[in-house]
Computed example of a mutant assay.
Amino acid sequence: MIRTTPTAAFWISPGGEILGVGTSHISKIIDTPERFGLTMTYLKAVYKDYGEPLGFEGKARDMIVREVISRGWIRLRRYPNNCWKINLVDFSEQVQVTLACWAKRMLCSGISGFIEGDGYMPVITSHPDGCFEHKTTMKDLAQSR
Rank of each mutant, 00 (worst) to 15 (best):
C108Y: 14
S126Y: 10
I86P: 01
C101E: 14
S27Q: 15
K139S: 09
F91S: 01
Y50M: 11
D90Y: 05
S70Q: 09
D140G: 01
M138Q: 02
A45P: 05
A142E: 02
T39P: 12
I64A: 02
D31P: 00
A9Q: 15
W73N: 00
T98H: 01
E116H: 08
I111L: 14
V46W: 13
P33C: 04
V65S: 06
I69H: 02
P122H: 03
F114N: 06
I124N: 00
R71W: 01
W73A: 02
P80N: 04
H134K: 14
M40S: 05
G117Y: 02
D118M: 06
E116A: 09
A9P: 10
G22E: 09
I30C: 06
E17F: 08
M121E: 02
M138N: 10
L43H: 02
I26M: 15
K48A: 12
E17D: 08
S144W: 06
S92M: 08
I12F: 06
L99C: 02
S24P: 00
S92W: 11
E17W: 10
Y120H: 02
M63F: 14
A8Q: 00
G113E: 11
I2W: 08
T98F: 04
Y47I: 05
F56G: 00
L107W: 05
M1S: 15
M40Y: 04
I115V: 03
C83A: 12
V97A: 03
F114W: 12
C131V: 07
V21C: 04
T39A: 07
Y42R: 10
Y47V: 03
R35V: 15
I86M: 04
K104G: 14
K104L: 04
V68P: 11
K48D: 10
V68M: 07
P33Q: 09
M63R: 13
W11D: 07
A8R: 09
L19C: 01
C108K: 13
V95Q: 05
Y79T: 07
T4P: 05
R77V: 15
D62N: 02
I64Y: 06
E116T: 01
R105K: 15
M138C: 08
D62F: 04
T23V: 13
T125A: 14
